[in-house]
């Protein structure tokens, strides 16, 4: 086990009240595994990632309970929520790294790309400026960037979004982390660039054996990259399992709804059917009682789903789902 999150809760205090952004979330990532966390905006997936990095903005956010246990390179384990800031700094950028959705915004406008990649090498591997810059150039080259020497001397405003995401990956990969957290890394990019970035992440994974926590709302991306999928809704994990299984037999109606809302190619004998999940994701300020998904669920039953919060049930085959009517809705409801 590389990382295991137990009973994590994150609460935000806003002017309109407290919002449970993440509610007793538990999941684990094995060494070398790619886990995709899927969910709509506001489902708590990005906040979970920030909690792992210890960067939940405080105020207004606060981790109210839980453990985030990370196994370090030297074999020791560390609860990231309780580790000293010196330990956290030692892990950040070194053993756990992160890439964001808006790569251009994640690069400081006043430093060259090379300097920004070299920064963590100088910090964690105590490289000299010249050595770190040489390594940064090599890194850019290995990520398929042409003329890496020239690029290393460029400033962020001189490069495209796709190039910036490669630079972000180079920055994240500089110290060969054991876990890469990718928060919607392809969402802001063109479709063709998206594919390139995904294969780049796969390539890095093969080269270094790192694990990837891939946060996305794009199921197409999940199918391409993830070993396992965790679906989040209203701050909770609602379904989890191996990617193939989740795609072929989802057991939670929300997962089924997500899968059904992915557009598919139209052929003569199967016209395009694009179904959307009715309604909107609930406000984190007021999660519905009972099952948080019940107001949008076509299987919801009065007197049951709106009163009893469903437990996450282990289905035995590596899959787990949170639905009270799981036994009645058999075989991947759509």
């Amino acid at each position: 086990m590389l990382l295991s999150i137990n009973d994590l809760s994150v609460r935000f205090a806003t002017a309109a009240g407290t919002a449970d952004a993440v509610a007793s979330l538990s999941f684990a990532i094995e060494e070398g595994e790619t886990l995709a966390i899927v969910g709509e905006s506001g489902s708590g997936k990005s906040v979970s990632a920030l909690a792992i990095m210890g960067l939940v903005p405080n105020p207004p956010g606060r981790v109210t309970s839980g453990q985030i246990v990370f196994r370090r390179r030297n074999g020791s384990t560390e609860d990231l929520l309780r580790a000293s800031s010196a330990r956290l700094r030692d892990i950040r950028g070194n053993e756990i790294a992160m890439v964001f959705q808006e790569p251009l915004a994640a690069l400081s406008p006043v430093f060259t790309i090379g300097e920004q990649i070299a920064e963590s090498l100088r910090l964690h591997q105590r490289k000299s400026h010249a050595d770190a810059m040489r390594m940064a150039v090599r890194m850019l080259g290995s990520l398929g960037i042409s003329e890496p020497e020239m690029r290393a001397r460029s400033y962020p405003h001189q490069i495209s979004g796709g190039m910036a995401q490669r630079v972000m990956i180079a920055m994240a990969m500089a110290c060969r982390p054991r876990l890469l957290i990718a928060d919607e890394p392809t969402t802001a990019l063109d479709v063709t660039i998206q594919a390139e970035i995904l294969s780049l992440i796969r390539q890095m994974k093969e080269e270094t054996g790192m694990a990837v926590l891939f946060i996305t709302h794009n199921l197409g991306v999940v199918a391409q990259i993830a070993d396992r999928v965790a679906v989040m809704y209203a701050g909770r994990l609602v379904e989890e399992g191996p990617t193939k299984q989740i795609f072929s037999s989802p057991r939670m109606p929300y997962t089924s709804g997500l899968l059904a809302s992915v557009p598919r190619l139209v052929t003569d004998d199967s016209p395009l059917v694009l179904s959307a999940i009715p309604g909107e994701p609930p406000s984190p300020l007021a999660h519905p009682r009972g099952c948080a998904f019940h107001p949008r669920c076509r299987y919801a039953v009065k007197g049951l789903c709106d009163t009893t919060p469903p437990p996450l049930r282990d289905l035995g085959n590596g899959q787990a789902a949170r639905c009270l009517r799981i036994d009645e809705i058999v075989g991947g409801a759509t």
């Binding site: 992160m98 994640a106 400081s108 920064e119």
Partner: peptide
Amino acid sequence: DYVRAAQLKGLLRRTVLVRHVLR
């Protein structure tokens, strides 16, 4: 985001403030 990215590199808070925020 770039200040967050700087923190994520594991830089000291002071370094983040001087090198990235102040600049």
